[in-house]
Computed example of a mutant assay.
Amino acid sequence: MKKIGAVSLACLLAASALLSGCGKSNDKGDASSSGGSEYKSIGYVCSALGDKSFTDLSWSGIQRTASDLGMTAKAIEWGTDKSKMEPCIRDAAESYDIVLFNGNEYVEILQRIHTDYPDVKFIATDMTPTLEWDIPNLFGVNSKQHQGDFLAGALAQKMSKTGTIGLVAGTDTVSINDFIIGYVQGSLQANPSGKVAHSFIGSYTDTAKAKELALVQISQSKADIIHQVAGGAGLGVFEACKDNGIWGIGVDADQREFFVESKADLADVILTSMMKRNDMSMEKAIRDTVAGTAEYGKLNMWGVAEGVTVLAKNDFYKANVPQETQDYIDDLEKKIASGDLVVKTVYGMEQDEFVSIRDSVKP
């Protein structure tokens, strides 16, 4: 049977058109700089800021940590032309003490070029556990999104009146299917007879198609709460939820907080978000590096127990989710963190098993 294997970046293509080049900087630290650490500067390589999701969340954690530690930080954006990824990584490595980025594609580039920069510390988050690499100056992080989406699926099913919930995803990739498998398991935990509709946009920027697919789930499948796992395209999902008076669930960051001032009407349909707290991952990795306690050359697996893949329990969530349901979700979270409840991941799962679980809840 075929095993699920390679994966492309998930939820990282930004909705913003604000792009900049890979211009070099002279921010690399030296021993005479302020503070006692040998690390003085941070470079964050990304496609573009402005997605109101994973990329912006990562950058917020880097900025906060740099400020606290008295370091300089700069985002290096390569835009939509992937041929610029390697030059940007090289520029960052030549200019900064610590270089951070998200996803396997960067690591695959680094695998080829890391020997040119033995003194630079690289930090990569959102790595998949199946990626093989041998880079002694790389600190790798995998976020257990299947655990967080288990909580999202359980909450959605508890809040549903029809027993059918939905999920609109960017692309049909292994990492996205890891969200789906968690979401389905959570739904089944909360309601064994519940249904889960799912759709793939084929893009992380096409808001119109995202809205169209969400509307189909609402009208044809009777989904009454929809989770978006589609980066910037997820705005279309929230628009469909707003137009139909149903709840939406965001992804990666606390998306309600991102939109509460700029798009209040959309913010008011976002019941919660399944956060991949990459701001926390970035912060911990940087602080441990500066402190000299980070274990480089290995992949670190962080999830519910570490507070990395969890639901946004903001005031809006607390005001709109019944206390009984909040207590139920809190209990599931504790069980996952302790290991008493094991959520299956798609990585290493037989393809037939994944399809069987996913299709068992089709509306």
Score class of each variant (00 low, 15 high):
Leu188Asp: 03
Thr289Met: 00
Asp97Ala: 04
Glu108Asn: 15
Glu350Leu: 15
Thr128His: 04
Gly248Phe: 01
Ala10Gln: 11
Gly70Trp: 13
Tyr328Cys: 14
Ser8Arg: 02
Thr65Asn: 04
Asp327Ser: 13
Lys335Pro: 04
Asp224Tyr: 02
Asp315Cys: 00
Ile246Trp: 10
Lys344Glu: 13
Arg358Ala: 15
Thr128Val: 10
Val184Tyr: 02
Thr72Cys: 01
Thr345Phe: 04
Ala75Cys: 10
Asp81Thr: 11
Gly23Ile: 14
Ala48His: 01
Gln326Asp: 11
Tyr347Pro: 07
Val251Asn: 09
Ala233Val: 00
Glu94Val: 03
Gly36Thr: 05
Asp224Cys: 10
Phe179Leu: 14
Lys263Met: 14
Tyr296Asp: 15
Ser58Asp: 04
Leu332Tyr: 15
Ala66Trp: 03
Glu38Trp: 01
Ile226Asp: 06
Gln351Val: 07
Lys313Val: 14
Val269Met: 00
Gly250Val: 12
Gly339Arg: 01
Asp359Ile: 08
Ala285Gln: 05
Gly50Cys: 05
Asn244Arg: 07
Pro363Ser: 05
Asp268Leu: 07
Lys84Arg: 14
Lys335Arg: 12
Ala124Lys: 11
Asp254Trp: 04
Ala285Lys: 00
Arg358Glu: 07
Asp149Phe: 14
Val7Ser: 15
Arg256Pro: 11
Leu110Thr: 02
Ser203Ala: 10
Arg277Asn: 13
Gly339His: 08
Gly236Leu: 00
Val45Leu: 04
Asp30Glu: 09
Ser8Leu: 00
Leu235Gln: 14
Ala169Glu: 02
Arg112Thr: 14
Thr171Leu: 09
Met301Ala: 14
Gly297Ala: 06
Gly36His: 07
Gly348Thr: 06
Leu19Pro: 08
Ala223Asp: 03
Trp78Ile: 11
Asp331Trp: 08
Ile336Val: 03
Leu13Met: 12
Asp359Glu: 15
Glu94Cys: 09
Leu13Trp: 06
Leu266Arg: 04
Val342Met: 10
Gln189Val: 07
Glu306Met: 12
Glu261Arg: 13
Ile113Phe: 09
Lys242Glu: 11
Gly50Asp: 09
Gly248Tyr: 02
Lys284Arg: 14
Gly21Thr: 12
Asn244Tyr: 00
Val355Asn: 13
Lys222Phe: 09
Gly29Gln: 03
Ala93Asp: 03
Asn191Asp: 05
Gly61Met: 04
Asp224Thr: 08
Ser58Leu: 03
Val174Gln: 13
Gly231Lys: 12
